[in-house]
C-alpha cells in the first residue's frame, strides 16, 4: 500500500520534465506490483538504452580495465552493485530530498556506496582490488550511475529503481565482458586469466590458454584496442537494429500486400 502512495507522490512531486513517463507508468497500472514493467526495464537496460552502447556513459573504466575478462567482470560486478544500491536508496529518499539539493545528495550516496564496495573488495578480493586499482574509486564518476539516479531512480518507486539498476548494470557488464574477452584472447591468447583473484584459488583451473604468441598483440592490450573494439560493438548493435527495422517494414509491407490480395479476391 505504501508503494501506491509513493507512486502518487511521484506524480505530485514531479515538477520537472518527463511527467509523461511517470504518469504513463502510474496511470496504466495502479497496482504497485504489476506496475513494474519488468520487460520494458530489462530491454531498456540491456539493449535499447544500454549505458555503454547507447548512452555511451562510463567509457573511462570501460576502456581502461577491459584488458582481461576477469578485470572486466570484477569492475562490472562492482558497478552493478553500486547501481542497484544507489538506485534503491535514492528512490527511497526521493520524497525527502528537495529539488535544490538532490545532486549533492545523490553524489554523496553514490560515493558512500562506492567507498563501501572499495573497502569490501580490499578486504575480500585483494588481488582484484590491486589489479583494478584507481578504477574502483572512479566508479563514483561513472556517469551511468548518476545518470540513472537522476533520470530514473528519482522518479520511480524503489523496486523499479532497483531493477533498473540491476538491468543497467547487467547491460554495462555485458559490454565490459565482450570487450574484455575479445581483447584478452587477441592480446594474450588466454581467457579467464587471473580468475583466482576474483574467485579464490580453485579458479586457477578455469584459466584457458587458447593459443600462444611469441609476441603479444599489443594493439588489443592497449587502450586503443578497447576503442576500436568498442566501435565494432556499437556498429554491430546498430546493424542489428537496422536489420530489425527493415524486417518490421518488410512484414508490414507484406501484410499490406496480402491484405490487398485478399481484398481483391
Amino acid at each position: 500500500m505504501t508503494n501506491t502512495t509513493t507512486s502518487e507522490d511521484i506524480v505530485a512531486d514531479d515538477h520537472n520534465a518527463n511527467e509523461d513517463v511517470s504518469s504513463e507508468v502510474t496511470e496504466k497500472k495502479p497496482n504497485p506490483f504489476t506496475l513494474v514493467d519488468w520487460s520494458t526495464i530489462a530491454k531498456e537496460g540491456l539493449w535499447k538504452n544500454n549505458p555503454a552502447l547507447v548512452q555511451l556513459l562510463g567509457l573511462c573504466p570501460l576502456l581502461a580495465v577491459t584488458n582481461t575478462f576477469i578485470n572486466a567482470l570484477g569492475l562490472g560486478i562492482a558497478t552493478m552493485l553500486v547501481l542497484i544500491v544507489s538506485n534503491l536508496t535514492i528512490s527511497l529518499v526521493k520524497d525527502w530530498v528537495t529539488k535544490e539539493i538532490r545532486i549533492p545528495v545523490f553524489i554523496m550516496i553514490i560515493a558512500s556506496f562506492v567507498t563501501i564496495v572499495e573497502l569490501l573488495m580490499n578486504a575480500y578480493t585483494y588481488g582484484l582490488y590491486l589489479s583494478l586499482g584507481i578504477f574502483i574509486p572512479l566508479i563514483v564518476t561513472n556517469c551511468a550511475i548518476i545518470g540513472r539516479a537522476e533520470a530514473f531512480a528519482s522518479k520511480n518507486p524503489p523496486i523499479n529503481a532497483a531493477f533498473d539498476g540491476f538491468m543497467m548494470g547487467l547491460g554495462f557488464m555485458f559490454i565490459l565482458l565482450i570487450l574484455g574477452g575479445v581483447r584478452e584472447i587477441l592480446g594474450q591468447g588466454t581467457l579467464f586469466y587471473g580468475a583466482h583473484l576474483l574467485f579464490g584459488e580453485w579458479a586457477n583451473d578455469i584459466e584457458l590458454q587458447i593459443f600462444q604468441f611469441d609476441q603479444q598483440f599489443l594493439l588489443a592490450i592497449l587502450p586503443p584496442g578497447a576503442f576500436i573494439g568498442m566501435g565494432f560493438i556499437i556498429a554491430g548493435k546498430n546493424y542489428l537494429d537496422n536489420k530489425q527495422l527493415d524486417n518490421q517494414k518488410n512484414k508490414k509491407a507484406n501484410k499490406v500486400e496480402r491484405a490487398r490480395v485478399t481484398t481483391v479476391n
Binding site: 529518499v93 528537495t98 554523496m108 550516496i109 558512500s112 573497502l119 578486504a123
Partner: peptide, 28 residues
C-alpha cells in the same frame, strides 16, 4: 531545511562508511 537535510545525509553516509571501515579494517 535544505541545509539540515544535507547535513543529515552527510552524517548518515559517513556513518555507513565508518561502520564498513571498522568492520573491514582488520581484514584489510
Amino acid at each position: 531545511k535544505n541545509a539540515l537535510l544535507l547535513s543529515a545525509f552527510a552524517a548518515v553516509c559517513t556513518l555507513l562508511v565508518s561502520i564498513t571501515y571498522v568492520l573491514t579494517a582488520p581484514v584489510i
